[in-house]
Nucleic acid binder design. Structure first.
Lengths: 209, 209
DNA sequence: CTGAGCCGGTGACTGGAGTCACCGCCTCAG
DNA sequence: CTGAGGCGGTGACTCCAGTCACCGGCTCAG
């Protein structure tokens, strides 16, 4: 069950050998295909996942309406599960793998101790909190500003950046879900964006210009 | 300039004497009247304020439209300025005192060291991050759900709780600003809430029922 | 081949928030 | 006393997201 330090070393250049071996002793690697639920609302967290490779989507749901909060990229942690793990309170959000991902699972009960002991780990989590904080702020601002065209365009840009592709193969229905709106709205706004020359809809998907 | 340990001890029961004296040596107390700007968007943070007494309002602004993010109550810290201080990046939000407040100012450059050294301080900040995180999530959900009546009612409940009063003396204009909408909308929705029996508007202010 | 099911596209309508214009009321400075 | 300015109240209108109903095209299993 114990994993090899060499497997995780490349992802944490800022960690010293001691911390790496402690993590290797108690943590475990998990290979998840796309579409696996990592964290569910209301769930109590026993392991805190760190995304080593792949892409994980974090979102909230309010009565049938969901909203994408942000993506967790490589070598980032799910700070919501971290916070839920630390305070032993239930999670407020959902997380699922969007691409096949390699996850490092850390037992929540040991984490508090590690944080106290290893500054590098502490800093990682502060950094993550910061990142998420700012992303949530952006989400709030774009919700406040309203304007679906603006939101949709930013969504596409971000998606393209994360996937490293200029042509995105997405269902209108899926986009609608992530932006918390209806499919027809997406269809219309996409057409509007196309008329404005910001994107192009082809057979293979949506191309960002 | 150096302040007395006794002045801050009552607010931090979980801190040991060593930490208290370190803080007393480098920190300073500041008595601010209501309506003072503590943090401005784009500003680089040199001191991180902790609210000992009073009430501080934190909000964002997007092109003439502002939105209340949350309130900082007694013995809580402004985590945005903390994060801005740590990462040496400009602030993304505004903060002003809503009531006369007693602030403890900590120099940002020393904070990183303190956090490393004193677990209790570290935990305070984690706790604060958590709290704000959850509040932002609530804000996002209520923005997503939309419905002004729901948002306004929650806003009034929260305001009443923080001020410890059941009758709130607020300008419609001010409420509108904090919820990121227009005065007329507030006027109308307040009337609707009154018809629903949730509040009562009297000469002295808005009474929550 | 064919029917079911998913996908996108569209027109018509609804409802809520935001905007505009204008009101009367109160207060306070001059 | 009076005029200016802040406040709240209101009707009319606009705009946009969301909803409904319905279509035609494509794919794939049987």
């Amino acid at each position: 069950m114990s994993l090899d330090v060499a497997e995780i070393r490349p992802f944490f250049k800022q960690f010293n050998e001691e911390l790496l071996s402690v993590i290797a002793a108690s943590g475990s690697l998990h290979n998840a295909p796309a579409g696996i639920e990592i964290l569910r609302e209301g769930q109590y967290v026993k392991v805190v996942p760190i995304v080593l490779q792949g892409l994980v989507k974090v979102f909230t749901r309010t009565e049938e309406k969901e909203l994408l909060l942000y993506y967790i990229d490589s070598a980032q942690s799910c700070i919501m599960s971290f916070s839920a793990g630390l305070t032993q309170s239930p999670s407020r959000v959902f997380a699922i793998t969007e691409e096949p991902s390699l996850l490092l699972l850390l037992p929540a009960d040991k984490l508090t101790g590690w944080i106290r002991e290893y500054t590098a780990l502490n800093e990682l989590f502060y950094q993550q909190y910061n990142l998420r904080y700012i992303e949530m702020l952006d989400t709030i601002n774009s919700l406040l500003f309203g304007k679906m065209d603006y939101r949709l365009y930013n969504y596409l840009l971000e998606k393209g950046r994360l996937k490293g592709e200029k042509v995105l193969d997405l269902r209108h229905k899926q986009i609608a879900a992530e932006l918390g709106t209806a499919r027809e709205v997406i269809t219309r706004v996409l057409k509007k964006l196309e008329q404005e020359g910001k994107i192009k809809q082809t057979a293979t998907g949506i191309e960002i210009i």
